[in-house]
Simulated scan of single mutants.
Amino acid sequence: MPCQNLFFPLPPAGTEEHFEPLLCRPGLRIERIVSHYHASPADFWFDQTEDEWVMLARGSAELEFDDGELLALSPGDWLLIPAGRRHRVAATGPDTVWLAIHLTP
């Protein structure tokens, strides 16, 4: 399998965030998410059945949780979002790259 790079090539900016699976195994999915000034719709919440470990690799982002918490992320910041914790992307900057690991609890 050839070596690949998390930052190159990046998909062109579009109206939606770009989700790219990097590795999938039973109970595990690793994906790259690329955002360009994207945010979730105001009335939309992710409500996932799996735990999500997410790291902001490049750019800037804010996550909002349904309990009112707003979390600003800088490159290198990471967190674990437990299954069922409703959240949304409040804002992102240009060429923002996330690494997300989804785990079946």
Rank of each mutant, 00 (worst) to 15 (best):
L63C: 10
I30T: 06
L71K: 12
L70T: 10
R32V: 00
P41H: 13
R25Y: 08
D66L: 05
R25S: 04
A83M: 10
R86T: 10
L99Y: 12
P21D: 14
V54Q: 00
G76R: 13
R58P: 05
L22M: 13
L80M: 10
A83C: 11
T15Q: 07
P105G: 15
A42K: 14
F7C: 12
W98C: 01
V89M: 12
R32S: 01
P2F: 04
R25E: 09
H38S: 04
A42M: 07
P82I: 09
L71Y: 06
C24T: 14
I81D: 02
R32P: 00
Y37A: 06
Q48Y: 10
E16Y: 05
T96R: 06
L99R: 06
S74L: 08
S40E: 04
S74Q: 13
Q4Y: 14
C24L: 04
H18S: 10
G68A: 09
D43H: 11
G27A: 05
W53Y: 11
V54M: 02
G68N: 09
A39K: 05
L56G: 03
P12H: 07
F8H: 13
L6C: 12
F8W: 11
L73K: 02
H18I: 06
T104E: 15
V34K: 00
D77H: 07
R86N: 04
A83S: 13
S60R: 14
T49N: 06
W98R: 00
F19W: 11
P11N: 05
L70S: 07
Q48G: 03
A90I: 01
W78E: 05
G59Y: 02
E31S: 14
P21I: 07
A90G: 02
L71E: 06
S74K: 11
D95Y: 04
D43E: 13
A57Q: 09
W53V: 06
W53D: 01
E20I: 02
